[in-house]
Design a protein around this nucleic acid. Structure first.
Length: 259
DNA sequence: ATGGTGGTTCAACCA
C-alpha cells in the first residue's frame, strides 16, 4: 500500500498538477492539505474519473484537507476530538481521518503559528495538544494508524537550510519542536527520518527569492506511524519533481510505502 | 529594513 501527502496550495489552481502526478504515481491514498475552498467546490469528478473516492473537509478561502482513496474509506472523522466538553470546536478545516484497508489514515494541516507571541502561536500549541491527546488515544487502543500531512514543524537542524535564521520562527521554535517531540515520544515513528537518518531533504521551498532554484527549503511534511505500521514500513521518499513544474505548489509530495 | 511570490477574493489576509 502506498500513501502520499501533498500540501497543494489550492486544489483548483493545482488540478492539472495533481491529476498528472496521480496518473504517474497512482498511490492507493492521497492526502491533500490547503485545498483552499469549501467541500462543494472540490473538483471531485476529476478524481473519481481516475478511480479515487474523495472525502473532504473544506472552508472558504483558507485551509481545507482531503483524503482520496482507490479503496473504500469508512468511519470518517472530520476534526480532532476535543480535549474536554467545554473545549471550543475548531473553526478551521484542518483534519480528516478514515479507515482504509483496516488502517486509520489521516490528512492533517497543523497551524503555521506565526508570528510567535500572538494568538496564532497559542492556537498552534493548542492544536498540537489536541493532536497529542488523539495520538495517545489511538496508541492506547492499539489502532494501526498513519497520520500524514503538513505539520508546519521543522523537527531538527538537518531539516532546514538555515537553522540560525529560523530559530525564532513558529516552525522551528524550541517550544514547537518540544511539543512535536513529546508526540513522537508517545511511541510514534516519523517515517522519513527513521529510514534516512542523515539525509538532508526538503518538502517545501518558498515561492520567494529563488528558494527552489537555490534549494533553500524546509522538511515540514511528515508521516506519523503507529508501532504496527512501523513494523510494516518499507519506504518513505520525497518526490521533488512536482515542485519544478509549471504553476507548482510550494510543497512537493512525500510518498510512504507499507507492506 | 525591506521586498521578494502566489492563492483567495476583491482590500486584505495567509503562507
Amino acid at each position: 500500500m502506498r500513501i502520499a501527502t501533498w500540501n497543494v496550495n489550492s486544489v483548483r489552481a493545482r488540478l492539472v498538477n495533481i491529476t498528472s502526478w496521480l496518473e504517474a504515481a497512482h498511490p492507493d491514498v492521497l492526502l491533500l492539505q490547503e485545498i483552499k475552498g469549501e467541500a462543494s467546490a472540490f473538483p471531485r469528478f476529476e478524481f473519481e474519473a481516475m478511480g479515487y473516492q474523495c472525502h473532504v473537509v473544506g472552508q472558504k478561502s483558507y485551509n481545507g484537507v482531503a483524503l482520496l482513496s482507490l479503496h473504500p474509506a469508512t468511519d470518517v472523522l472530520t476534526a480532532l476530538p476535543l480535549l474536554s466538553p467545554d473545549d471550543p470546536a475548531d473553526a478551521q478545516a484542518r483534519y480528516i481521518e478514515a479507515t482504509v484497508m483496516s488502517v486509520r489514515i489521516a490528512s492533517l494541516y497543523l497551524p503555521n503559528g506565526n508570528p510567535v507571541g500572538t494568538e496564532k502561536y497559542d492556537y498552534k500549541l493548542a492544536w498540537m495538544a489536541r493532536l497529542k491527546a488523539h495520538c495517545a488515544a489511538l496508541l492506547a487502543s492499539e489502532t494501526p494508524f498513519v497520520l500524514g500531512g503538513d505539520f508546519n514543524v521543522i523537527p531538527e537542524e538537518l531539516d532546514v537550510y538555515d537553522p540560525k535564521g529560523w530559530e525564532g520562527d513558529a516552525l522551528f521554535q524550541p517550544r514547537t519542536r518540544a511539543a512535536y517531540r513529546a508526540i513522537v515520544n508517545l511511541g510514534i515513528t516519523e517515517a522519513f527520518r527513521t529510514l534516512h537518518p542523515t539525509t538532508q531533504a526538503y518538502s517545501f521551498w518558498d515561492y520567494q527569492a529563488g528558494a527552489w532554484q537555490r534549494d533553500l527549503g524546509l522538511r515540514i511534511d511528515h508521516f506519523f506511524l503507529s508501532p504496527e505500521m512501523t513494523d510494516r514500513l518499507i519506504a518513505c521518499d520525497i518526490d521533488r519533481e512536482p515542485r519544478g513544474k509549471e504553476k507548482a505548489s510550494d510543497h512537493t509530495p512525500v510518498v510512504l510505502t507499507i507492506k
